[in-house]
Design a protein around this nucleic acid. Structure first.
Length: 872
RNA sequence: GCGGACGUGGCGAAACCGGUAGACGCACGAGACUUAAAAUCUUGCGCCGCAAGGCGUGCGGGUUCGAGUCCCGCCGUCCGCACCA
């Protein structure tokens, strides 16, 4: 008998059409099944999907298909993060309208995604640039505004000179724009902000209620939110300059216990005090300017020495007014954090220590480490650990915590002017989220500016504010600014002439609530509460770690803000989060150092050495390190090519094989070949089993011999492992289990030329189990095999089979026998054999007698069903 | 500098609560089928050793009858944050 090769190219579209016809993956009204919402981070429509998408969506699809088979009502939607800069760049470079460019890309990528055979509900597809979508986003913005969660203020912003737009703090990485990589400048602009800091405390504490999030992501968010407990402490200025308006300086500290170790005050170059002093001190002015220039660059931050300038001001110590300390402007003090002013305690803070060393300031230790001499310790570095207070008058002998408490009590009681000198204060690193972007291709901020009435919300009946389509990109800047017809409107309050807000929203706003919109994608309000309540939170969210802070933090904020404004009933959007690793590939370069694509070369292996050569002319190519697939290094593989050559199932199978999903996976030609071989092998085995095994639906024979029993055990064991492994996201172990079953089935087919009834039954059963357990991974192949096994139904509609518990546990177990911790032999005993029997058996084993020699056996440890250890 | 993760054959990896280290796959070797090749099938494959046996999960110590797994101290790789007072 010969079976034709499985033709994925022919079969895959056929099964996709079948699923479509039956609307299998569309989610409808509640029908009583428990719900399960699987979501993968939706893609930016860049033009083509890449292997990272295939991996991400393959994982989500396994979960979705598995949960559906387990009886859940599954929601598994897809959409497009469709606003953003590349569309405008395309408009500038290629004279295409951003809208046309975006929707063309979406069309291409939708087809590509469909060719992967994902079990998606396409009827819920949304693109964030659809007016339907952003209209609701504008409603949300206005609701947030009403609730006090959105506001406008002038602020220093991060300006990206390449993208010509403002960036949020989170979007500046090492002083550079997260997208453009350009050095970010500081500018003053009036901006719209979302009040994420209103939820600082909650966003932090709720992280502990997310056990199904990776620890790593929670830690990153904790650090980002950056809670610290400390005090605001006011210092009187002894010899204030000028009009005397600056009579005091307020510092923030988390170490009030070290106040007696203070040796200076330092303020940021952007601090009002610095500005006031600089006004009559040109040298200080020059220093301030220097600090500002150095401010943002990465190199400057890393190598910057502690520099300062003595303002000549003197501050009196809050616990001893007769003690005066110098006030410096210093380059290492951040205006953004705390009050922009600190007191320096060199003995217990490394930065202050460095500064004191540079400027000859006193270094007085006030905390003695346990059992050590404080004086000796601070010789070369600051000590910031716990200890006992010394040199600190009334604090001496207290530990750090007690001293903090004592200082806080005293400073709260003392007054300066009419206010307390000190105040306990929780400080946050998290800043409000600036969302104004000076770009065209984004969601318009629904505000009208009126000279007389100020900024006015666009009235509900005038929503949505649609993006005008007649725009040109022939000059720099925001085309909305130049679009008079769109821009000039009348004030909704007074009817007078007014202008539209021309800034659009940060695209992270778009992705902050799409998961909620998917639950009711065509609703005339942002959400439909009843429906949203039924589906949310997302049970399993899957995406890259690169969004650990930005997108996930914004989404957590949005969920709370939407709850506050009545659109949702939950706090946390994603109950489970999985961050998958990247797809990486070797890099190749030619003799001139130019990157060469994998498709342009051939690899050969001789004497253990891999060599690469250019296909066109045989030139030697250097094999470089394995790196993330990127266009710039040309080490990409196009999913389309793979699907055309091998089929989607092969690509999916390979993406989930070998590497654990959270780790990077290395794309190799050999790996794809391996996956393809598996697909073909399953097809052959199943066809052979269909022919030689029992017919569909045949009952189990009364007598089952040992070989048939063994095959059944393997099949049921593999099935149980696959289910368990999917639940735990160990897809690579599912692949291993499937391989084992395929091996066992292959061997059984080999062994039984003319099989008896029991073997025939086991062959069919094993083949059916194999097909059904790979169905979430290679769904098309599974359908084709299922049909070959004589079924009329679709595997995609079958329930997940239950492994027979009787076949998972056997009556006898093999126990390894160790002597002094080294394995010497094995014994087979009854599963429920008692320890005494086992011990007796073991004591008589030749290997044990030999290994023990003439030493007495001191002890025999029997761990039931696991191991025996003889101690001599 | 701070925080986190990781380190197992030639390679990707597995090993659930401390209980047979290396499942499964890739690569490679031998054989069968074939005029030949591909495909497929059988078989071998941690290291040293003819073997018996010994050694082996980055390194050094410890706890334990027993450690890849737990504890202490190093080394290395990757990631995140980075003057946050």
């Amino acid at each position: 008998m010969t079976t034709e090769r499985y033709n994925a190219r022919e079969a895959e579209p056929r099964w996709q059409a079948r699923w479509d016809e039956r609307k299998l993956f569309q989610t409808n009204e509640a029908d009583g099944r428990p719900t399960y919402y699987v979501l993968e981070m939706f893609p930016y429509p860049s033009g083509r999907i890449h292997m990272g998408h295939v991996r991400n969506y393959a994982m989500g699809d396994v979960v979705a298909r598995y949960k559906r088979a387990k009886g859940f009502d599954v929601l598994h939607p897809m959409g497009w993060d469709a606003f953003g800069l590349p569309a405008e760049n395309a408009a500038i470079e290629r004279k295409v309208h951003p809208k046309a460019w975006t929707y063309e890309n979406i069309a291409t990528m939708r087809n590509q995604l469909k060719s992967i055979g994902l079990s998606l509900d396409w009827s819920r597809e949304i693109a964030t640039c659809d007016p339907d979508y952003y209209a609701q986003q504008q409603r949300l913005f206005l609701d947030f505004l009403k609730a006090g969660l959105a506001y406008r203020r002038k602020s220093k912003v991060n300006w990206d000179p390449v993208d010509n737009t403002v960036l949020a703090n989170e979007q500046v990485i090492d002083g550079r724009g997260w997208r453009s990589g350009a050095l970010v400048e500081q500018r003053e602009l009036t901006q719209w902000f979302l009040k994420i800091t209103a939820f600082s405390e909650e966003l932090l504490s709720a992280l502990d209620g997310l056990p199904r999030w990776p620890e790593k992501v929670r830690t990153m968010q904790k650090n980002w939110i950056g809670r610290s407990e400390g005090m605001l402490v006011r210092w009187a200025l002894a010899n204030a300059h000028g009009d005397g308006a600056l009579k005091e300086v307020e510092v923030y500290t988390t170490r009030p216990d070290t106040l007696f170790g203070a040796s200076f005050i330092a303020v940021s170059a952007d601090h009002p005090l610095a500005a006031a002093c600089a006004a009559c001190d040109p040298k200080l002015n020059a220093f301030v300017e220097e600090c500002r220039r150095a401010g943002t660059s990465l190199a400057a931050l890393e190598t910057a020495e502690k520099k300062g300038y003595d303002t000549g001001l003197r501050a009196s110590h809050p616990l001893d007014p007769s003690w005066e300390l110098p006030v410096y402007v210093a380059n290492f003090v951040l205006m953004d954090y705390g009050t922009g002013a600190i007191f320096g305690c060199p003995a217990h803070d490394q930065r202050d220590y460095d500064f004191a060393r540079a400027y000859g300031l006193p270094i007085k230790p006030v905390v003695a480490p346990p059992g050590a001499d404080a004086e000796a310790l601070i010789a070369d570095a600051a000590y910031d650990g716990d200890g006992v207070l010394v040199n600190s008058r009334f604090l001496d002998g207290l530990d750090v915590a007690a001293a903090k408490e004592e200082v806080a009590r005293r400073l709260e009681a003392a007054t300066l002017g009419n206010r307390p000198v000190g105040e306990r204060k929780v400080n946050w690193r998290l800043r409000d989220w600036g969302i104004s972007r000076q770009r065209y291709w984004g969601c318009p901020i629904p505000i009208i500016h009126c000279e007389a009435c100020g900024p006015q919300p666009v009235p509900d009946d005038q929503l949505p504010v649609l993006l005008p389509e007649d725009v040109s990109f022939d000059q720099p800047g925001n085309p909305l600014d130049r679009n008079e017809a769109w821009r000039n409107v009348s004030c909704p309050a007074c009817g007078g002439p007014a202008r539209r807000e021309t800034d659009t929203m940060d695209t992270f706003v778009d992705s902050s609530w799409y998961y909620a919109r998917f639950t009711a994608p065509r609703a005339a309000t942002p959400t439909e509460r009843a429906v949203a309540d039924r589906w949310l939170p997302v049970d399993q969210y899957i995406g890259g770690v690169e969004h650990a802070i930005l997108h996930l933090l914004y989404s957590r904020f949005f969920t709370r803000a939407m709850k506050m404004t009545g659109h949702l009933g939950i706090d946390e959007p994603f109950a489970g989060l999985f961050t998958q690793g990247m797809v990486v590939h070797e890099t190749y370069r030619d003799a001139s150092g130019q990157w060469v694509a994998p498709s342009e070369i051939a690899i050969s292996e001789a004497e253990g050495q891999r060599r690469a050569a250019r296909l066109s002319n045989g030139d030697p190519i250097e094999i470089g390190p394995i790196e993330k697939m990127s266009k710039s290094k040309k080490n990409t593989v196009d999913p389309n090519d793979i699907i055309e050559t091998y089929g989607a199932d092969t690509a999916r199978w390979f993406m989930l094989s070998d590497s654990p999903p959270e780790r990077d996976v290395i794309w190799t030609e050999a790996g794809v070949e391996g996956a393809s071989r598996f697909v073909q092998r399953v097809w052959r085995l199943v066809n052979e089993a269909a022919e030689r095994g029992a017919p569909a639906g045949a009952a189990a024979p009364e007598q089952i011999g040992a070989p048939a029993e063994a095959l059944r055990r393997t099949a049921h064991g593999a099935l149980a492992r696959v289910g368990e492994s999917i639940e735990r996201f160990h897809f690579n172990r599912c692949v291993a289990a499937a391989n084992e079953l395929a091996n066992a089935l292959g061997q059984a087919l080999q062994a039984a030329r003319e099989p008896d009834a029991d073997i025939r039954f086991a062959l069919r059963e094993a083949a059916e189990i194999l097909v059904r357990m790979i169905a979430p991974f290679t769904p098309h192949l599974a359908e084709e095999c299922w049909a070959a096994l004589g079924h009329e139904t679709l595997v995609a509609e079958e329930a997940w089979p239950e492994a027979d518990p009787a076949l998972l546990a056997s009556d006898s177990v093999t126990l390894p026998v160790q002597v002094n911790g080294k394995k010497r032999d094995e014994i087979v005993v009854a599963r429920d054999a008692d320890a005494a029997t086992i011990e007796k058996m073991v004591r008589e084993l030749d290997v044990v007698l030999k290994a023990v020699g003439d030493k007495p056996i001191r002890k025999v440890i029997v761990v039931p069903q696991r191991i025996v250890n003889v101690v001599a």
